[in-house]
């Protein structure tokens, strides 16, 4: 909770590369990974994106692995369920629990492996975007979309206030912790409720204050931001193109003979 992905993105050397290139690569990777019928493509994507994040974007490897293992509990539980109960074919191993037979068979294991690889591929793509592109840059992209202004305004203001409230929440939490506010379940529930209600009232008051202060500065429903242009440079374009070609090639040979299959 103390360190978010956005913090790394602000320090990333890839921060100043073209936003559209990064978003395009990430969407390409995610879609290719999800639509692939063989685990090879998602693993390749995971490898490329992971390397790009750690080597080019200089993300500390240890922290990166820690972030990757975040959703692990959900993924591992679900993958185990799929391995045991999905598909038919030859049974690899099995055992009896309380007169109930549990077994893993070939198709189930293959499916579980595929789902695992897709999740890994998707997550590395997502992290590549999250760890190289600060939200501030993404707002420029969001503004180009046809979404209603109020939606974009709210997301921008929300982004700003997330950090304000996180700081408030953290300092309250420290203060409560040193006063033994989290010593057991009962007190921690009580402390957390106090924290959340204070936070709510703070944010309520803050909301009223922002309106007054923004009105005083001629707010007309549209915040204007300075947008820097980020030109595409030759090396990164070539690298990206190379990556796309390799992934498409592997997709082509692992997913049968033709496009229209």
């Amino acid at each position: 909770m103390t360190k978010m992905l956005d913090d790394y993105a602000l320090m990333s050397p890839l921060r100043y590369t073209n936003n559209w290139l990064k978003i395009g690569l990430v969407l390409f990777g995610i879609l290719m990974g999800v639509s692939s019928g063989s685990p090879a493509v998602p693993f390749l994507i995971a490898l490329c994106m992971g390397t790009a994040t750690v080597v080019i974007s200089k993300m500390p490897l240890k922290q990166y692995l820690k972030i990757l293992s975040g959703p692990a509990s959900f993924v591992i539980l679900s993958v185990i369920v799929i391995a045991f109960f999905f598909g038919g074919g030859q049974e690899l191993f099995g055992f009896n629990v309380l007169s109930y037979h549990l077994g893993v068979n070939v198709e189930g294991l293959e499916m579980a492996f595929l789902v695992f690889s897709r999740t890994l591929g998707g997550m590395t793509c997502l992290f590549f975007l999250a760890l190289t592109t600060p939200m501030v840059e993404l707002f420029a992209v969001l503004k180009k979309s046809k979404l209603p202004d109020s939606f974009i305004e709210i997301s921008m203001m929300m982004y700003r206030y997330i950090f304000v409230f996180l700081e408030v929440a953290l300092s309250i939490k420290y203060a409560q912790t040193v006063r033994l506010g989290y010593k057991d379940l009962r007190t921690s529930l009580n402390s957390l409720a106090m924290l959340a209600s204070t936070l709510f009232l703070r944010s309520w008051e803050q909301g009223e204050k922002i309106f007054i202060s923004m009105n005083a500065r001629c707010y007309d429903g549209k915040m204007a931001f300075y947008e820097e242009t980020r030109p595409l440079r030759a090396p990164e374009t070539i690298l990206a193109l190379f990556y796309v070609v390799v992934v498409v090639f592997v997709w082509y040979i692992t997913n049968g003979t033709g496009w229209m299959r």
Binding site: M1, E153, I154, M156, Y159, Y182, L185, S203, E208, F211
Partner: peptide
Amino acid sequence: ISERRELLPLLAVAGAFIFVLSSLKLPSV
């Protein structure tokens, strides 16, 4: 929002509040 413009910042902070609330760890059993 077009009726009551003062609601826009309020909704924004409400969203931020939901985010912060959902990132707090619940005491777990």
